[in-house]
Simulated scan of single mutants.
Amino acid sequence: MKIELKRILHSQQFSEETHAFTANLYINGIQAGYVKNNGHGGATFYTPKDQQGKVLIREAEKYCAALPPADRSNNNLMNGLSWDMDLEQYIDDLVNKYIEKKEIAKFNSKMNKIMLKGIVYGIPDQSYSGFVYTLPMVKLLAFPKGPEIVLKDLTEKVLPYLNDGLKLLNTNIPESIIKAAGLKKEQYLEPTIRDIRYGSIPYNEEDKKNQGRRQ
């Protein structure tokens, strides 16, 4: 059975002990009713749109009642508690996923703006810190000494702090520079640029070989 929420309107302002929201409830592609929570810690209410909606909601209630208990083992506030699933809980979980996805999108949007101007590191989708340059990253890397500046900053200002799950979050720095700075695969996100060759610094395996021959 497919249970969905559409036209979700969430109010952060009125969300106190629970999320304050309204939405349309769809079951198997048909609008069956409406749902809402006032945000004061009370239950989430759902009401049918019409007679067909009543039938669909009854079927959804049976479907949810047969699902495994709601697991909260990954929620520190819940101390790993779990409880029987029902349609109300199913709806609340859909709302939580919607809000989480929205918050992650907002987080990444802010982070990406900084990434275009500098270096950011942290925990993906959760937290970040960093610093910016006077030039956008793409222009800085285009200057002869630009890659060396980025390499030095990665080595001295970023690498020492990449512990406890923290990673380099930039995807716009060539992987060859990242590796030259000493970062391991698990310490950075997959970049969109692989190799770059500037100055005397070997940024990839071929450069290292060539430099060895020159020496």
Rank of each mutant, 00 (worst) to 15 (best):
I3P: 05
E4A: 10
R7Q: 15
R7C: 05
I8S: 06
L9K: 15
F14A: 07
S15Q: 08
T18S: 15
N24G: 10
G29Q: 09
G33R: 09
Y34E: 09
V35H: 01
N37K: 02
G41N: 08
G42N: 12
A43I: 09
F45N: 10
Y46K: 06
Y46M: 03
T47I: 12
D50K: 03
K54T: 11
L56T: 07
I57V: 02
E61N: 13
P68C: 11
P69Y: 02
D71L: 02
N76A: 10
N76M: 10
N76H: 05
M78L: 14
S82T: 09
W83H: 14
D86A: 09
D92I: 03
K97C: 06
Y98N: 10
K102Q: 14
S109T: 13
K110R: 14
I114V: 11
L116D: 15
G118V: 04
Y121C: 07
D125C: 08
D125W: 04
F131P: 02
L135E: 13
P147C: 10
K152C: 00
L154H: 02
L154W: 09
E156I: 14
L159K: 15
L159C: 01
P160C: 06
Y161C: 02
L162M: 07
L166C: 07
L169N: 08
N170P: 03
N172E: 04
N172Q: 04
I173Y: 04
P174D: 10
P174L: 04
S176T: 11
I177N: 03
I178K: 04
K185A: 13
E186V: 12
T192M: 08
D195C: 13
D195I: 05
K208W: 03
R213D: 10
